[in-house]
């Protein structure tokens, strides 16, 4: 089959760019550990409290070491459960100091949800029977909206929270 000389040049240039591009994202993923959220642990969605992370007393923000935090959450239509504060009121805002490393762990009790801290790289699907987990460094100060970004029913847009980095 005949290829025009210019087409050969064009395709060679295109394919070479493609190879470089794939090497870059492959290097970032496998050597720098920037894979997208792909946690493989499963759970019984009908009994999430049986898992240590999702016991009512373990929900919400916990400082595990200096500058290191974890946030455990349970999603259900149409709410994120971040645990309760000292007055037994449901927590709606997660407050962490700037520069802290936060491990977000979440599962769903019912349907598929999303969990995105808008304006950061924290963006994951939340599915019944699976645990999603993603660690991020909160580099910038400010208020970041947590949105459910996968359709979960007619109250979907009322499912939100907030992360405050101070």
């Amino acid at each position: 089959m005949h290829l025009h000389k210019y087409e050969k040049v064009w395709l060679t240039f295109g394919m070479a760019s493609l190879v470089i591009f794939l090497l870059v994202i492959g290097f970032a993923a496998f050597w720098k550990g920037t894979h997208p959220q792909s946690h493989l642990e499963t759970i019984d969605q009908n009994n999430v409290e049986a898992h240590d992370s999702f016991k009512p007393e373990n929900l919400g923000l916990t400082e595990v070491a200096d500058g290191k935090y974890k946030v455990n959450m349970v999603a259900s239509a149409f709410n994120y459960d971040f645990g309760v504060d000292k007055d037994e009121k449901p927590v709606k805002t997660i407050r962490v100091p700037q520069g802290s490393t936060v491990l977000f762990t979440i599962t769903s009790k019912d349907v598929v949800h999303g969990f995105q801290v808008a304006g950061t790289n924290v963006n994951m699907m939340v599915e019944p029977g699976h645990i999603s987990r993603y660690e991020a460094v909160m580099k910038n100060k400010g208020e970041f909206t947590i949105v459910c970004n996968e359709y979960c029913g007619i109250g979907h847009h009322q499912m939100f929270g907030k992360v405050e980095v101070y």
Binding site: G114, A118, E143, F144, T145, C148, H157, F160, G161, K162
Partner: peptide, 19 residues
């Protein structure tokens, strides 16, 4: 790019500058 979600009815979420 600013984080606004798709497939959602109008919502002001938790409010604030981002929204």
């Amino acid at each position: 790019l600013l984080g606004g979600p798709r497939r959602s009815a109008y919502s002001e979420y938790a409010g604030g500058a981002q929204v």
